[in-house]
C-alpha cells in the first residue's frame, strides 16, 4: 500500500519523460523535495550526538547535491520552462513556492507541536528513501532508452541505497532500546505517510479541477468580456486604466486601512 504511489509514478514515467515540459517540471519537483529534505535533516542532525550527527549531515549534503543535479537536469531538458518569469508581473509563482509560503506560515504558528522521536524520524527516512529507491529503479528500467536516465539515476540510487541502510540501522538500534514505544511510533509514521499520500491525491484533484474552472472562466467569461470592453475602448493592452491618480496623497487612517 505504502509503495503504491511510487509504483504508479514509476510505471507512468515514460508519459512524463517523453514530454520535455512535463519532465522538466517533475525534475524541478524532485529538486525541491531534495532541498526541503536537506534543510529538514540538517536541522534534526544538529540535535543528535556524534557520530550520528555527521552521518545525518552527510545525508543532508547528499540531498543538496541531488537538488543541484535535478535542477541542472531540468534546465537541460526544457530551459524556458525552468526560467524565471519577468518579475512575476501576473502575480503568480510556481505552485510549489506558494505552498511553501503557506507551510512556513503554518509551521512557526504551531511552535509547540510534538517533535518526532529519533526512531520515528529514522523510520520516516527509511520509508521515504526506500520509496524513492523503488521509484528510481522503475524509472531506470522503464526509461532505459533514455540516455539521461541511464546516466544520472545510478548516481542517485547509490546514495539513496546508503540512506536506506543507515536509517534502517539507526531505527533498529532505537527499537531494541524501547520496543513498545517504537511500535506505536511506527504506526504513527505509517499513518502520517498514508495521510500525506491521500492529501497529495486530493491536491491533484484540486489542481486538475481548478485548472478546469479557470480555463472555463477564461474562455467563457474573461475573453468575451475583454473583447467587448476593448471594442468599446474601455481598456487596451498598453493602457489598463483611464488615468493614474496624481496629486497629494491623503495619508490618513482610511489610506492605511485600505488594502
Amino acid at each position: 500500500m505504502i509503495y503504491l504511489r511510487e509504483t504508479v509514478a514509476g510505471l507512468i514515467s515514460p508519459w512524463v519523460v517523453l514530454s520535455p515540459t512535463r519532465f522538466a517540471r517533475q525534475l524541478q519537483q524532485f529538486a525541491a523535495t531534495e532541498l526541503y529534505t536537506h534543510y529538514d535533516i540538517a536541522e534534526v542532525a544538529e540535535r543528535q550526538p556524534s557520530p550520528l550527527r555527521e552521518e545525518m549531515h552527510r545525508h543532508a549534503n547528499d540531498e543538496l547535491r541531488h537538488h543541484g543535479i535535478f535542477l541542472d537536469w531540468a534546465r537541460k531538458v526544457a530551459p524556458y520552462v525552468t526560467a524565471g518569469a519577468a518579475d512575476d508581473p501576473s502575480g503568480s509563482r510556481s505552485r510549489l513556492e506558494r505552498e511553501e509560503v503557506r507551510a512556513l506560515v503554518a509551521q512557526p504558528a504551531a511552535p509547540h507541536r510534538r517533535l518526532p522521536t529519533l526512531f520515528e524520524y529514522m523510520t520516516y527516512i527509511f520509508l521515504s528513501e526506500s520509496r524513492a529507491v523503488l521509484q528510481f529503479k522503475l524509472y531506470q528500467w522503464i526509461n532505459r532508452y533514455d540516455r539521461r536516465c541511464r546516466e544520472w539515476i545510478p548516481r542517485l540510487l547509490a546514495d539513496e541505497t546508503r540512506h536506506v541502510g543507515y536509517s534502517a540501522r539507526v531505527a533498529r538500534e532505537e527499537f531494541r532500546r524501547a520496543p513498545w514505544t517504537c511500535t506505536k511510533g511506527f504506526f504513527r509514521v505509517l499513518g502520517y505517510i498514508l495521510r500525506q499520500d491521500l492529501l497529495d491525491l486530493l491536491r491533484l484533484v484540486q489542481i486538475l479541477g481548478s485548472g478546469l474552472v479557470t480555463g472555463l472562466l477564461y474562455y467563457g467569461v474573461v475573453t468575451p468580456y475583454g473583447l467587448v470592453k476593448r471594442a468599446f475602448g474601455g481598456v487596451r493592452r498598453g493602457r489598463l486604466r483611464r488615468a493614474a491618480p496624481t496629486g497629494p496623497v491623503a495619508l490618513d487612517d482610511a489610506f492605511w486601512s485600505r488594502s
Binding site: Q206, G209, S210, T214, L216
Partner: peptide, 20 residues
C-alpha cells in the same frame, strides 16, 4: 471562492469540482 475552498479543504475538492 471555489479555488480557495478547494485549497483549504482538500477533502472537499473532489466534490466541489464535480459541480463543473
Amino acid at each position: 471562492l471555489v479555488i480557495a475552498l478547494g485549497a483549504m479543504y482538500p477533502l472537499v475538492a473532489p466534490f466541489l469540482y464535480t459541480l463543473f
